[in-house]
Design a protein around this nucleic acid. Sequence first.
DNA 1: CATTGCTCCGCTCATCTGAGCGGGCTACTC
DNA 2: GAGTAGCCCGCTCAGATGAGCGGAGCAATG
Lengths: 342, 342
Amino acid sequence: MARTPARAGAPGSVSTLALAATVARRFHVEGMTKVEIARQLGVSRFKVARLLSTAVDHGLVRIEIHPPASLDGEMSEELRARFGLRSAFVVVPEEDGVDGGRRAVARFTAGLLEEVVTPEDVVGLAWGRTISVLSAGVRAPLHCRCVQLSGALPRPDVRESAVDVVHRIAEATGSSAVTFYAPLAVPDAATAEGLRSQSGIAEALAEHDSLTRAVVSIGYWAAGESTAYDSLSPADRDALTAAGACAELTGLLFGVDGTALPDLADRVVGVTVEQLRRTPDVIAMASGLGRALGTAAALRSGVVSTLVTHTTHARQVLDLPEPAPRAARRPAARPSRPRRSP
Amino acid sequence: MARTPARAGAPGSVSTLALAATVARRFHVEGMTKVEIARQLGVSRFKVARLLSTAVDHGLVRIEIHPPASLDGEMSEELRARFGLRSAFVVVPEEDGVDGGRRAVARFTAGLLEEVVTPEDVVGLAWGRTISVLSAGVRAPLHCRCVQLSGALPRPDVRESAVDVVHRIAEATGSSAVTFYAPLAVPDAATAEGLRSQSGIAEALAEHDSLTRAVVSIGYWAAGESTAYDSLSPADRDALTAAGACAELTGLLFGVDGTALPDLADRVVGVTVEQLRRTPDVIAMASGLGRALGTAAALRSGVVSTLVTHTTHARQVLDLPEPAPRAARRPAARPSRPRRSP
DNA sequence: CATTGCTCCGCTCATCTGAGCGGGCTACTC
DNA sequence: GAGTAGCCCGCTCAGATGAGCGGAGCAATG
């Protein structure tokens, strides 16, 4: 009398797996609750939960997420894991060229904000070309509070000042605007300190302590690749380059390995690294070509929680060699830990 | 300034879908809870739930269940839907031939019982070749109560009587056995009534009112295809054939369309159709060749909740033409109704 | 304007679900 | 054959979840 090697009701037997499969079907596909399934089968709901686990353990259940075609899910996930981000979105631009990428990123971020911002939010807004494009795309009534993150005066290639951008967004979304007039950085720390305590500016800067979100764009420390770089004197630029500046966020500088550089900080009128770090959700936009190093540096700073970029840029960032130095490799997000597990 | 047709944050926009996709990934793949996701994103948990729904609605989430290779998931589902069963298992036999199929079905059912039966269960056991094979395969300590469903005396091709089978299973599983000695059917109703009220039999039959499960095999009304058929006199057989008998379950007869035939019922010593219908889980085993009509008839009776069969038989049953007559088509189980839905 | 119908949102409440616990059984060990 | 390690089970309880509700904003309409 030939007998199968595995005992009939043992875990891993055909009956068990078959049962697990049908239970999984009812739960995942038909959407029945575990209690319902348990009643139908005449077993305890715990049994059902365990059958569900064994179904997962034996690979009987496969769940696939297919992001919309205009989003590169694979690279998004790769970026997220590599830099320990909370979210990463790699947009597939519809138009070519640097501007196409920037527009796609800005538009996507606009949609993201419309989706995610609530009236309770205090949203900090940086200044730059991408943000300027973004400001044209937000329409939904968010009724939040929009706060200018740093000083900035108009430049030839960006028609609007930081103040204009904040006001534009606030108006379009029925939000309140908190702005102040100041340059991004001033020649010396004392002047900066003076400006910071100046009435009208101090109140605005105080808001930076209660930010719930911040929208910034990642600048690369090179001519034309960073609003901060372009706003400074040649002497400053060189000094900061020598100090190791690589990435810039709202006037804050970071080295290749992501360490915050203090050199410019005391002369900047705007949000501080600490304030940004305390902000629950920091959304960074990265676009352009040849600035991958800057993006990587900014992401290593740990300040950014959400990244929005486009395919070309994402590819460049991911193709960058992993930095050899520093402490051990970072833990790459967190390994997948399914809830229902022993 | 070209604008995309769909507004940025509108439902169905890229940002919304992208967000829905990442939320879905975190929920389904990483196993995060909705509350966690909501906290991370800075939105309400309801928002997360809705994003999850839109992800499903837009087909961003695909969940596939892969039953073990030794089970034909497709036919199982087809049978289940066609006959409105609660579960159907189509086993892929390892050995060929009629006996191979029967053994596979019996062994699978044995495993199913080990998996599903609890000490609170009162399990009714029919009599037949398949159940006889099954009784050799149940080993796990179920500590339930095993009740004989119908009378039956030994026959040349089945070494054991119904009593033997019940005792064997009870012993192997540490369960109590409730049995009685009687033939399956007697020549007239009065004799049957007498037997039913006889001490020793009456007590056993009383248990049929509190059955929680029943294990039966489906017989086809033809020579050698039904224990009942073979136990009766030629005259009885012909009369019942004329009455439209097609399928048999524990001595209970059904017509092609699934209606219970009263003709033999009053001369049978065993469970009644009503009692079987009240039993929460009726597991029917179907195997063999050329008895598809009987299986279909039995399934149409609505008595069976769980079906176990093998590929060849399942194919034959599914290839049967749908019955044209009777009321409208039956509702085919129930349409998939995912929990999270508007 | 007021009305109506729509959509989107977050709340409340009852139900469902997960984590962890201890009892009972098995199988192995000395 | 007593000990014990491992397992499977169902319970309890806090926390997560779904269904349904009503309010707010918006648009088309009378």
